[in-house]
Design a protein around this nucleic acid. Sequence first.
DNA 1: TTGAAAGCGCTACCAG
DNA 2: CTGGTAGCGCTTTCAA
Lengths: 338, 338
Amino acid sequence: MTKDSSTPMVTVHEVARVAGVSAATVSRFLNGTARVSEDKRRAIEGVIERLNYKPNVLARNLKTGSSRTVGVLTQSLVSGYFADALAGVDDALQGTGYAPLIVSGHWHADEEAERIELLIARRVDGLVILSGNLKDAQILKLSQRVPIVAFGRRLEGTRAYGFCLDNYRGACDAVEHLLAHGHRDIAFITGPSDHADALARLAGYRDTLARHGILEQPQLVLPADFDESSGLAAVERLLASGQRFSAIFAANDLSAYGARLALYRRDIRVPDDVSVVGFDDLHSSMYTTPPLTTVRQPLFDVGRCLGRAILAMIGGEKMAREMPELSLVVRESVRRVA
Amino acid sequence: MTKDSSTPMVTVHEVARVAGVSAATVSRFLNGTARVSEDKRRAIEGVIERLNYKPNVLARNLKTGSSRTVGVLTQSLVSGYFADALAGVDDALQGTGYAPLIVSGHWHADEEAERIELLIARRVDGLVILSGNLKDAQILKLSQRVPIVAFGRRLEGTRAYGFCLDNYRGACDAVEHLLAHGHRDIAFITGPSDHADALARLAGYRDTLARHGILEQPQLVLPADFDESSGLAAVERLLASGQRFSAIFAANDLSAYGARLALYRRDIRVPDDVSVVGFDDLHSSMYTTPPLTTVRQPLFDVGRCLGRAILAMIGGEKMAREMPELSLVVRESVRRVA
DNA sequence: TTGAAAGCGCTACCAG
DNA sequence: CTGGTAGCGCTTTCAA
C-alpha cells in the first residue's frame, strides 16, 4: 500500500488531536449522531477546514457494513430505452449520498445472475433490476440477501417489489387510434416471444381487433425482435407476401424505424400510403420523418420511482407505489383512411 | 449496524480456524500472494466451499486503500454518443475486478468538478473523463490525486493522458465527399462555439472549401447546438433566408436529424433535392430515411481504449497510445449533382 | 456532553 | 512455507 506523499492522509484522530477533543467527538460531529457543544463544534470545524480533512469512505464502509451504493442491473448501456431509466435512477439518487453501480446483463439470465453476484459482493445496499430474463423466483431468493426493486415484472415481497406499466392497455390505445382513423388491415410487428411486455402488446393488438369484430389475419402478425433490422425484415416479408394492409403497429419504436425504412425503400409513403405507430417513444421518435406516433413509456419517471423506492426500502421506510402511466402521443405517422 | 441473521458472516478467521491454518494463509491463498502447500490449499478450498465464504470487499478496500473502481465522468446518460463510449469502458473493465462508477456532468464545469470530488471521495483508483467543460489545467491538477485518462482533449502528464480524434480531418473528408458529388453551395450546421470538436469540424469545413477555391458564404454557416431542435431551427432559418444551397453538412448526427425534419416539412427531398451529411454515426443513423451518410466516430472502441488505458495507468504499466480513427461512412443521403 | 477502547474483516510484515 | 500480530480509519458502545 503506497502512501501518497502529496496527500498527507489526515484522519479523525489527527483532527481530534489538533482540535483538542476525542476522535469520537469528531465522528459525532461529522455524522450528527449526538449533540456536540458549541465550542468544540467550532474548533472541530476549524481544524477540518485547515487540515482539509476528508473522511475515509472505505473505513466508514467497513465499519457500517454498507457501501452507500445501489446496484442497477440494466440490459444494455447503449439502448435509449434503458438509458432513460438509468438517468431516472441516477436522478433519484442524486444528493442522497448513494451512488449507482451500473452493470449490464445483455438479456442473458446467466450473465445477469453473475453481475448481480458481483454487485452483492461489492456490498450494494439495494438493487434495481431493469427487465431481464431472470425468473421471478430467483429475484425473490436474491431479495433475502439485498432489497430489490424491479421493473418489468410484477413482484411483491418483504424486500422485493416489482411493477410493470400497462403494456396491454397501451397497445389497445394504439390500435384504437388506428381503428379510429379508419384502418382495418393493421399489421403488427411483434417483439421477442419470451418477453412479457411484447406478449402483452400482442394481446392488446389481438383483443382490440376482436373487440371491434375484426378477424385477425395471421399473415399480418410479423415476428421480430425489438430492433430495427428485424423490423425492416418483417416489413420486407410482408411486402413480398402481397398482403393488403394500410397500417403497421410495431411493438417498439426501434422496429418501427426498421419498418419505416423498408417502406421507404419501396417508395411507400408514411403516412400517405401506410400509417405507422410505435411503442416506447424514444427521444429520436420526435425527429423521425415523419415524427412517429407512438405509445409513450415515461422511462425517466419510471427510473426515478425505482430509485426512490429502493432508497425507501433501504431506509426501512414505506415506499410510494404510484407509478407513471403510458400514454399515446400522436404525431404525424398516422393518416385517416376512407 | 444490523447483522443480517440470514447471512452468518463468515470471516477469514472462521475459515482459517475450521481449516486448521492461520488467517494469513487463507489470505495468501485467496490472493495468490505466496505459495501455499498443496494440502493446506485443499483444506482451505474445501472449507471455503462448505462455509460458502465470500471475502468482505469493504474490509479489503480499507486495508488496501483501493476500491477497485474507476470513476467515469460522462456528460449525459441518455446520449447515444456517450452511451457507446460508456459501453466501451465497461467492456474494457469486464473481468478485471474493476467496476465503473458512472456520473454525469451535464456539460457543466461546476457539476463536473463536484461529481469528480464525489468520485475521489469514494476512492476511485482512476478516472475516465468523457469530454466536458473542465479546463485542462483543472484536470492536470486533479491528476495529482488520481490517474486520469480523458477523451476530447489533448493532455499529457505523468498521471494524465488525453486524446482527441481528428475531427478536423473528419470534417474535411465529409466536405470532400460533397464536393466530389458536385456540390458547391454547402451549408454547415455548427455545434456549440465553446466545444473544441465543433470548432475543429467548422475549421475543416472552411479550409476544405478554401482549398477548392470556393468562397465561403457566411449565410450558409448556421449556428446550432448539437441537438435536433437547434438543427431543425437552423435549417428553417436557412430556408426562410432564401439562400441557395444543395447540401448540408451538420456538425453532428443529431442536428442532421433536425435538419432532415426541417427539409421534410417543406417537402424537400433528401437526397434528391438536398444532400445531407452528418457526424458521429449514431446507431440510429443507419435507419433514418434515407440512411445517413456521416463521419463515423468509433466510440465503443474509444471507450475500450480509455478503459484499457486507465487500467494500465493504475497498474503502473505503459499504456498503448494507438487510438481508433474516424472514417466516412457513405449511405444514401448524398446525391451527385450536375 | 465527552473520552477511552474495542473492534469491523482483511492484508502484510516479521519471525521462524 | 507458515503463523502471529499490528494495524487500515472509522463508528459505537460503555462509563464517566
